[in-house]
Amino acid sequence: MPRMSDQPARWSQATVYPDMWSDPDDDPRNSAGPSPDGERATLQDFLTNYRMTLRMKCEGLNAEQLARRSVPPSTMSLLGLVRHLAEVERGWRNWISDADPLPKLYGERDADFDGAVGEPAVVEAAYADLEREQAATDAALAEHPDLGERVGKDRTAVRELMVHRIDEYARHCGHADLLRERIDGRVGQ
């Protein structure tokens, strides 16, 4: 006898490779031609693709779904990840600068996740915060074209900051995979 469950059935939008998020021809992360030349361009390309992956994992969901928590006691949600990454982008600018630290966007520790509530205005603000903070961090790093240059109070290499950004997005895209599957069953890379 089949059991009733509130678990969504697994599915993918892809038809060519059913374990992928979208078909290769429809995937905005796939670009025609060879990969970028140079270390900085390669690092930026990976970062851009992970940023896009996070957005793709959030597409098509309403505010309540975006704010839905994974499993107790975790406070993680897709909306929380968007807010967290906006907060983290701002924090990276503190690594670059010798000035006083920028204030946190959302306040106390974990407020980025705790404040991720299913309201359209909160979702809209989170995406605006993320775009603004990404652009500001990109601009701050662009002022330092030498990847070996050491910046900020801790004298961190620009290369290390770039790699750390990729690592942060990649890790959270893995979380986003699981969160999205839990919400509506959609799977894929």
Rank of each mutant, 00 (worst) to 15 (best):
M1P: 14
R3E: 15
P8W: 00
P8N: 03
W11T: 00
S12W: 03
Q13R: 12
T15R: 03
P18K: 00
M20K: 01
M20S: 05
M20W: 08
S22V: 09
S22A: 10
D23E: 01
D25V: 09
P28H: 07
N30M: 09
A32T: 06
P36H: 00
D37H: 08
E39D: 13
D45E: 08
Y50T: 01
R51T: 09
R51M: 06
M56F: 02
K57I: 07
L61R: 02
L61I: 01
E64Q: 15
A67H: 00
R69Q: 02
R69F: 06
R69M: 05
S70C: 04
V71M: 04
V71K: 00
T75E: 01
S77Y: 04
L78W: 00
L79M: 10
L81W: 09
A86R: 11
G91W: 15
G91C: 04
N94L: 05
D98N: 12
D98S: 15
D98K: 10
D100T: 13
D100W: 09
P101Y: 14
K104F: 07
K104T: 14
G107C: 10
G107Q: 07
R109C: 11
A111Y: 01
G115Y: 00
G118L: 01
A128Q: 13
E131N: 13
H144S: 14
L147E: 15
K153C: 11
K153V: 14
K153A: 14
V158N: 12
R165S: 14
I166A: 00
E168M: 02
A170T: 02
A170W: 05
H172R: 03
H175P: 01
H175R: 05
D177Q: 08
L179G: 03
L179W: 02
R180P: 13
R180M: 06
I183H: 11
